[in-house]
């Protein structure tokens, strides 16, 4: 290779390496900031107390905790996963296994369109459809709004992973006389299982981290634990949003601590899946 080509090649590698580093740098910056400021806040109270007690009075020096918000987040995430995952799997299977039906193409386009919708509009929609008739904000309404956010993401991930299973495995399944359902559920999902789980986890992570869908649907107090699924519920994201906009330093500190808890939960789920599920090599 000529010198010129070699130099261009080297420069090219340097540039893309640099830009890649730039692309990934914000992640480290964000994680570090959250870790430092969050740890500062949590350390002042102790982890257990931070996770179980209620927030402090504004403007004082105490820090309290995020107990009710944490409980709410757990409830909302669980409920929305229950609603969203079966639908996502169903839609992904339909789109991948029966790709030529118009229904499939339409649903594929539609579920992607849901991704475009500002999450606050979903909150308005669920408010009109569920909160008003029920006369109360509730965990169910919040979970429904969250699942509307989650479904397109999980579906997209699932579609991608299910599609990337080479056709040869399907054909092998059919060749030995398996039904389409059998092939889809046992062969394809089996091979893509790491991707499927990852897709579900991505969706759960999305539900965990959303704020706007809960604004008019969840309605809970930061200071009281939720009592039922048809009653209002708080969430860590709502707490962070509320507290970040106050001028009170102690509340802002609680917000950072809450952010650290949220990120820790997210990372825990994420890394567990990445490490535990064995990938099937294709």
């Amino acid at each position: 290779m000529s010198l010129r080509r070699k130099l261009i090649d080297r420069a090219f590698v340097a540039v893309i390496a640099l830009l890649s580093a730039v692309g990934i740098a914000p992640l480290f910056y964000i994680l570090t900031t959250v870790a430092i400021r969050g740890a500062e806040a949590i350390a002042r109270v102790g982890l257990w107390r931070f996770l179980t007690s209620i927030p402090p009075a504004p403007g004082t020096h105490g820090l309290g905790g995020i107990g009710p918000a944490l409980a709410g987040t757990l409830i909302l995430t669980a409920l929305s996963t229950l609603i969203g995952v079966p639908i996502s799997i169903g839609v992904a299977l339909l789109v991948v296994e029966f790709p030529n039906l118009f229904v499939s193409r339409a649903v594929r386009a539609l579920s992607k369109t849901f991704m475009e919708i500002p999450t606050i509009l979903l909150s308005m929609l669920v408010y009109t459809l569920l909160v008003v008739p029920m006369h109360t904000p509730s965990a169910i309404a919040g979970a429904l709004a969250l699942s509307l956010v989650m479904i397109p993401y999980t579906t997209t991930y699932l579609e991608t992973y299910l599609e990337s299973v080479p056709p040869i495995y399907r054909e092998a399944g059919y060749a030995i006389g398996m039904t389409k359902a059998g092939v889809a559920l046992r062969v394809v999902m089996g091979i893509a299982r790491k991707g499927v789980l990852l897709g579900i986890v991505m969706g759960v992570a999305r539900a965990l981290g959303e704020t706007a869908p809960l604004l008019f649907t969840a309605g809970g107090s930061h200071y009281a634990y939720p009592t039922s699924l048809t009653g209002p519920v708080d969430s860590i994201t709502l707490l962070i949003f509320d507290f970040a906009m106050t001028p009170y330093t102690n509340l802002i500190q609680v917000a950072w601590g809450a952010a650290l808890v949220l990120v820790a939960m997210y990372l825990a789920i994420f890394l567990a899946i990445k490490l535990l599920v064995k990938e099937v090599r294709t």
Binding site: P58, T227, S228, G231
Partner: peptide, 24 residues
Amino acid sequence: ASSSGSRVLLQGAGATFPLPQLLE
């Protein structure tokens, strides 16, 4: 609004101005 559980639930919403005082 409807109530739930054995405890009485009072739900309010509205202006952000009094929020810190109301929370206290």
